[in-house]
Design a protein around this nucleic acid. Sequence first.
DNA 1: CGTCCACGTCTAC
DNA 2: TAGACCTGGACGG
Length: 295
Amino acid sequence: MPEGPELHLASLYVNKMCQGLIFTGAVRKSEVSKAPDVPFTCEAYRITAASRGKEVKLTLTPMKSQGDQPMDIVFRFGMSGYFRLTTEDELPKHSHLRFYSNEEPCRVLSFVDTRSFGSWQPGGTWQPSRGPCVITEYKSFRSVLMRALSDRAFDRPVCEVLLNQKYFNGIGNYLRAEILFRLNIPPFVCARSVLEVLEAEEFCENKPLVKAETTGRNKRVGIKEEKGDLLRLCHTVPLEVVDLGGTFYDSEKEDYSDFKAWLQCYCVDGMKSARDHNGRTVWFKGDPGPMAPKG
DNA sequence: CGTCCACGTCTAC
DNA sequence: TAGACCTGGACGG
């Protein structure tokens, strides 16, 4: 379930399902998992979650201070991770890390990961190499990026830079396609050329279009401004997915028709696709742009 | 049966 | 810039 929206929905799911639940005992790992053990045991503790880009942090909080320390665990979801609360006899296949409630019979919060590309770090903090979250830290996402445009990272095609988690924490393969499609930006144009014309500060919501039109010299005029620019869409497009409440990549919802209907470009009939320089399929419409790989 | 493809990182040559 | 890391679904013979 793994782009920013799914990770964010996962944190909402954990907070909703674990509200009022009391967990107990040890955190248990599946036999097959190669990820680290989680050295946490407590008579009674609560679980809360937060997301940042493509990471989720669980916080385990002991209910009485009897020497037990709280613990954070930071998860990345790889291609197939998700959280699920079930009874003990309905544990999902590939449940690799488990937290047990004190109910009788107990319920179990599982980190499920079919392909095992996901990971967790006990006592972990947000990965320092990842930038601010496009969903929950929009302002700092935007300012960090606008101040970094001399970085050689922006010499690359915009479709590839959108997957660089140092600057676009939370954007993944379907989001990059949907975002570029909305603005009609060819995927293989140089990222810097798209970004350097943008404004450092957010303006769309406050400034009326009329003003931009009357001043004439303003390059922020026109239809683009109604929708927002590339950076704003890196925030609003993922938020649309959060509002849908689920995707193919989200275990909670079994009806994906809303998400299917929401996709305008990614895996859509009639759209083009190509391999980027990292071997990932990029979906787009029209001109691929000048930096497209040959062949 | 087989081959290809998938929402993402990682590290090694 | 490859591969490695994994499972499983779709589709072809």
